[in-house]
Computed example of a mutant assay.
Amino acid sequence: MEVIIESDDAACGVTVADVFDRAVRSGARVLGLATGSSPLSVYRELIRRHREEGLSFAAAQAFLLDEYVGLPKGHPQSYAHVIRTEFTDHVDVDPARVQGPDGWADDVFAAADRYDAMLRDEGPVDVQLLGIGVNGHIGFNEPGSSLGSRTRVTTLTEQTRRDNARFFDGIDEVPRHVITQGLGTISSARHLVLIATGGHKAEAVAAAVEGPLTASCPASVLQLHPHVTVVVDEAAAARLTNADFYRYARENRPR
């Protein structure tokens, strides 16, 4: 695991965009996209590079991590809508090649199984972008999720619903259920890239990177993966015991 500590959110976005830029220009064709606040700086930088530096996503396909269950189709807070407005509508990826879980299906449990099968058939994902919740969730794998879990319907904690209420007209509007890629599904990607900013993420980041491997902190599953990059700002790095080493290792990276 490589841990990179940057000065602020914008610098984190540039560093993560560098990872995606290198991957796409080197032939990566399957990208994993995340929603939420943390990835926004990444998407802004990738859009800029597309417009100003010729970074093309025309050959790529993309898969979303998760989707709410039960929101009206086209709801502005559905993740299918958010990823279009924040990223894919601004680059040259084919809209038909941007896939997400079907939270509107009559049978959402079967839809979860179909999405997991699609990821197996079309994958593996070359680079998977991740955020982290204050309780250590990635995707919507809440504490207690099996480290080997697959794509499934699951229930959000009240903490997660409160955290997401800012995007809605109050917590009562936030769905209780989602379809999420499981921790085992996420771990099938070739390269996992987690971005976290802000002091409110510091405890979760420290638990994920330096704490024990445990379902109580789902993001700790990253410790098992052979290729992980964690990019955090100074505030999110505040609880890392080995922060000085991470800075030293980056400055003295093998060439």
Rank of each mutant, 00 (worst) to 15 (best):
V42D: 07
Y43E: 03
Y43V: 01
R44S: 14
R44D: 15
R44A: 15
E45P: 12
E45T: 15
L46Y: 10
I47W: 04
H50D: 04
H50F: 06
H50I: 04
R51Q: 03
E52N: 01
G54V: 07
G54D: 08
G54F: 09
L55D: 09
S56A: 12
S56Q: 10
S56Y: 10
F57S: 08
F57C: 06
F57W: 10
A62L: 10
A62M: 06
F63Q: 03
L65C: 04
L65H: 03
D66M: 04
E67C: 08
Y68C: 05
Y68W: 08
G70I: 08
G70L: 12
G70P: 06
G70R: 11
L71S: 02
L71G: 05
K73I: 15
K73H: 14
G74T: 09
H75A: 07
P76H: 07
P76N: 12
Q77G: 07
A80E: 08
A80C: 06
I83Y: 00
R84Q: 10
R84L: 03
T85K: 10
T85E: 15
F87E: 01
F87H: 01
T88R: 00
T88V: 01
D89S: 02
H90K: 09
V91P: 06
V91K: 05
D92C: 12
D92H: 12
V93T: 11
A96V: 11
A96D: 14
R97C: 08
V98S: 02
V98A: 03
V98Y: 02
Q99N: 13
G100Q: 02
G100K: 02
P101Q: 08
P101C: 10
D102V: 08
G103S: 06
G103C: 05
W104S: 13
W104D: 10
A105V: 06
D107H: 04
D107Q: 04
V108M: 10
F109N: 13
F109Q: 11
F109L: 12
A110W: 03
A111I: 05
A112V: 08
D113H: 12
D113M: 09
R114E: 15
A117P: 07
M118A: 15
M118C: 10
L119P: 11
R120S: 14
R120C: 14
D121M: 13
D121I: 09
E122K: 10
G123C: 09
G123I: 13
G123F: 07
V125A: 07
D126Y: 13
L129S: 04
I132A: 00
G133W: 00
G133H: 00
N135S: 03
N135P: 02
G136T: 00
F140W: 04
N141I: 02
N141S: 07
S145I: 13
S145N: 12
G148F: 13
V153F: 06
T155V: 12
T155F: 01
L156V: 02
L156S: 01
T157S: 06
E158C: 08
E158M: 12
E158S: 13
Q159M: 15
T160H: 01
R161D: 03
R162Q: 15
A165V: 05
